[in-house]
């Protein structure tokens, strides 16, 4: 591949020169405009949610989409008042499921990914393929069997029934394997072993710090994934006090006959539930190293 790359500029020599003058000065401005348009496209709906969250249910259907409404604090108060502040309980539950679940998931993935990347052992290839195949199975079919399993051990309906299944994340293991390959040099491990360090000590003090950037990525992906998960908590939980936000919002969309609809609450709830995710993205973004994904194909 490197041979073709070096050859490339030469074969196109003449065209390159012709474009030189016009290109260099103008391009960045065009690039900026396109990028700003892209940013606008991506931000507009988010702005809409905020605008819509400020509208009374009447204004929602009668005023221009992006015009701010007059009911922001009313909606917020209604949301808070709903079922004695149950919404905030759901928010805390979501934080628990997504926070604890993502931490545990990242740790489990890091250990497994490290083992797969840095040790040669019988069955490692089979193990890795099996884990990868896990990505292909849609969660919808697994929900009911998982529920039956949880019920068999008496855990259905508890916090654990939602927490435990999300700890295993095949994609996370895949990423950790790639990242351990790239970030942890074999020579460092050998040196530590010669010094007589135990394997778990090596993992805790040398490997984990080296993998930090990748682990942040895995954590973020899994946090967002769990936060957005709907089906698993739906099938597992029946106690409303344990619901995560997604499931709580779903019950807002009243389904039974005679039930009012609560669009303004749903929209306010959506706006509020997106905020922690946005903050998380902004905070963790500087650690964001998705190049480990790109490295996946080589590894």
């Amino acid at each position: 591949m490197s041979a073709t790359l070096q050859a490339a500029p030469r074969t196109g020599d003449r065209q390159f020169r012709r474009r030189r003058r016009s290109g260099a000065a103008r391009r960045p401005r065009l690039a900026l405009i396109v990028l700003l348009l892209g940013a606008l496209y991506c931000l507009a709906p988010v702005i809409w949610v905020v605008a819509a969250a400020s509208k009374t249910s009447r204004e929602l259907f009668t005023t221009f989409s992006f015009a701010p409404g007059s009911g922001f604090f009313d909606n917020l108060a209604n949301l808070s008042a709903y079922g004695d502040g149950q919404f905030w309980q759901w928010g805390l539950n979501s934080l628990l499921y997504a926070g604890l679940g993502a931490v545990l998931s990242t740790l489990v993935s890091a250990m497994a990914g490290y083992a797969l990347a840095k040790f040669r052992f019988r069955g490692s290839q089979v193990l890795f393929s099996a884990i990868l195949a896990g990505v292909l199975v849609p969660g919808i079919v697994l929900a009911v069997p998982q529920y039956l399993l949880m019920a068999a051990v008496g855990l259905a309906g508890t916090y654990w029934s939602v927490l435990l299944p999300v700890i295993i994340n095949p994609f996370g293991i895949f990423l950790c394997r790639v990242f351990a390959n790239a970030a942890v040099p074999q020579s460092t491990l050998e040196a530590a072993r010669l010094d007589g360090a135990g394997e778990f000590r090596i993992f805790g003090t040398i490997v984990l710090p080296m993998m930090t950037q990748g682990l942040v990525t895995v954590f973020l992906l899994q946090f967002v994934g769990i936060w957005n998960n709907f089906l698993l908590p739906f099938i597992m939980l029946s106690d409303q006090d344990k619901y995560p936000i997604t499931l709580g919002l779903y019950t807002f969309m009243g389904k039974g006959a005679g039930d009012g609809d609560l669009y303004s609450l749903v929209i306010m709830g959506s706006a509020v539930s997106v905020i922690p995710l946005i903050i998380l993205v902004l905070v963790l973004q500087r650690f964001w190293r998705a190049d480990l994904l790109a490295g996946g194909m080589k590894g």
């Binding site: 489990v108 497994a112 040790f119 099996a130 697994l142 435990l164 700890i167 295993i168 394997e199």
Partner: peptide
């Protein structure tokens, strides 16, 4: 390696 992979294998077996 098996020790490191054990939590993942157990959970993978149970939940997948």
């Amino acid at each position: 390696p098996w020790l490191f992979a054990t939590p993942a294998i157990v959970l993978f077996t149970l939940f997948l």
